[in-house]
Design a binder for these strands. Sequence first.
DNA 1: TCATAATGTGACGCTGCGTCAAATTATGGC
DNA 2: GCCATAATTTGACGCAGCGTCACATTATGA
Lengths: 249, 249
Amino acid sequence: MNTLTRKQRELQQREQLFLDTARQVIREHGVSGLTMEVIAEITEYSKGTVYKHFTCKEDIMCALCADGIEYLLTLLNQMMNFEGRPREKSVIIALSYLLYAERYPEEFDLILAARNTNIRQKASPERLEASDNADERITRLIKEQIRAAIKCGDLKLQEGVTVDQLCLGPWALSLGMIALYEASDLISSIEFSPMQETLYQQLNFLLDGYQWHPLSAEFDYRKTICNATKLLENNTDAPSIGSTLGILK
Amino acid sequence: MNTLTRKQRELQQREQLFLDTARQVIREHGVSGLTMEVIAEITEYSKGTVYKHFTCKEDIMCALCADGIEYLLTLLNQMMNFEGRPREKSVIIALSYLLYAERYPEEFDLILAARNTNIRQKASPERLEASDNADERITRLIKEQIRAAIKCGDLKLQEGVTVDQLCLGPWALSLGMIALYEASDLISSIEFSPMQETLYQQLNFLLDGYQWHPLSAEFDYRKTICNATKLLENNTDAPSIGSTLGILK
DNA sequence: TCATAATGTGACGCTGCGTCAAATTATGGC
DNA sequence: GCCATAATTTGACGCAGCGTCACATTATGA
């Protein structure tokens, strides 16, 4: 029993090592620089061993993606403890997604890619489930805010509008905005203001449209953001995301 | 001179043939089913000839993407002739993007992929420019509506908000929503209502947030959509997108 | 009719994925 | 400590698909 758990621990550690290595490679050379060979070389294991953990490259990508969201969640959960109106918290959630993307654009490529049919078709069912799980936890967080807002009267569900749809709105807006900004060097027809600014503003418009109180005209969400951002920035650097080993500096 | 233009015409025709073939392959087998070999085989040319037209696979993907947007634009331009308030037209633009994605999900994968660094880095400068060009024309269309709305008093630009930012909002919302719905089978934590319904609703909220009149409570945009949708559906099937040859049914 | 230029071809080399038989290492009974 | 057996690790191998280029084919026009 003891032996077994030690083995399992070692396996888990190695898996984490592979993932950290993969993440590092992606940060340095982009998703296209990630190959199974490279992971094996850096970790000084063989390709075969890497394949004991992951069915294919796409499997690693999905795992990284889920891991990233998981990490975001730990940060968010910390932040959710502060006292504040539900709308404040919603804004923070949406923007933290963006902060993550701004800090690690290569990894955000992953988050977009992992929503792509071709990737998902190849990844193993277990990874997909893990990925789904991470998504679920993040949507739960958002939905909690919506429900809280409804409960305290800040928000009223209009006829024919569901909580799930309200959850999709800011999510889609953030995701789409990040995707567009990632490609902003390609899009010459738009003058791109700082992404944070634009998303903040559009998000306010959207939530104002929901009639989610306090409306942006009645409240200074900038202050909320400012505090939360500081909190996040202090934290993000600490450990390599998802790594308990800190092998990769 | 005459010979030269004939030659050029032939070249152009062949390029279109390659593109149509590639599109067809993607529709049938997804982006991952697209290989240079397959295109060569189907068209009964050799790989080398395909490479005379496109520098690499990513180059074809970018070209297809630009072509798709170009096609969307021709449809949109037709529709823009109807009498209507600027907000009506904006809603139509955003939703037609979605209709295109719903009809050809494989191709929408392309639109997402073409915004991805790894693809863009490989494509040729010329393709990127063509792609940028298509984007520009579509943003111009959106911005026209915004400016028209400002001019006729339906919309007032708030302090610190630019036309470009207002253009990014609905664009990001649509793009993000489509991306999320593409992955909806993976996301079990959300109950997905029909995508059109959700996007329509969220878009209304966003534009209401802009205080873009007439507000959704004051006007039935559903009717606008309904008419426009019919128009689009009749048209979309006619020619294979971008193809003047109609070789592929 | 033939020399020359333009165009098209597919065999080839390369990279990176994923596999699997063989080598290496760990385990546990004596 | 020794050996049989099981578990783990390895890297050579086969394969697919990309992109190239020397050669083959076709067009041009003198």
